[in-house]
Amino acid sequence: MTPRTVVRVMPARLMDPTAAPDWRLVRLGKGIMETLIQQLINGLVIGSVYALIALGYTMVYGILGLINFAHGDVLMVGALVALQTMTFLMGMAPGMSPLVMLSIALLVAIVVCMLLGFTMERLAYRRLRNAPRLAPLITAIGVSFLLQTIAMIIWGRNYHTYPQLISTTPLQPIEGVFITPVQITIIFGSAALMIGLLLLVNRTKIGRAMRATAENHRVASLMGVDTNAVIAFTFVIGAGLAAVAGVMFASNYGIAHYGMGFMPGLKAFTAAVLGGIGNLGGAMLGGIVLGVVESFGAGYIENLTFGFLNSSYQDIFAFLILGLVLIFRPTGLLGERVSDRA
């Protein structure tokens, strides 16, 4: 309110790179069909990132009934830690192969974020498990802003150019349709992670413990499940996925900064609700659908509103979808897997 408040003064476009259509791709597309396929590809790319983040939300919600508001900021921490690592490696070993460098950076980011997820759960959320319902959510909001502030202290307010270790030169699989190797990596990488997660949850002992805890804490612990460990594990896994998503996100748009986690976090939450919160398959589907809708929406909003609204309004779609889903189908596309906690 005071005139000196300069938080988030960047125009929406800069603050959230998703708001800017990838001009390299949009401008090159020519025919209607090509544009359509192009929008679909762009939507798939961003959608798979949303899906990865949404998994973290949905797992934690499924088990604790908590919206971990700070989840988006874990993504930011992942992206910036990876950036720091890459910068460090470039200085130390300039000759290192980009792929090795990226892998190391990714690994460091994952470990840091997992520790962060563990710490958050341990220090803040665990103590609030039986508190009145608003308390954990308010705490989560506080944690979110705390992470942003700490990131601002460490990395400053500036936008950092993200090193593009995987090529961003567009390939042209079909005449007039472009896709970059980064985007291909994102799609396949996230698909692999999602399959891995499904296997973990459905085929392993810890996965079974997770499902049991989600069903009913008390009963699960009576059956010998260490629910505290399971919940901590869930946070850790979610944070690890967010770290990867963060690196993908930043690599795709070539920018990273302290506030970058907020919008994708919110959109991923929307994706989780859209798919049916608590439902892993739903989070994946929701992420992809949201990505595609957004991509098409941004592409066509100008025509749809006779030029009144333009692609700066892209962020509105996520909120509108969230509102509509919650009003008309609160259990989401695939159904919610949480008993009503009202």
Binding site: I67, R133, L137, F269, S312, Y313, D315, I316, G323
Partner: peptide, 23 residues
């Protein structure tokens, strides 16, 4: 809406208003 959903939707409302003010 339940309490926690309400929070997120109202947040979205605030952001929509801000996006319109900006654009």
């Amino acid at each position: 809406l339940r309490g926690d959903y309400l929070a997120i939707v109202t947040l979205g409302f605030g952001e929509i208003v801000r996006i319109f003010m900006l654009n």
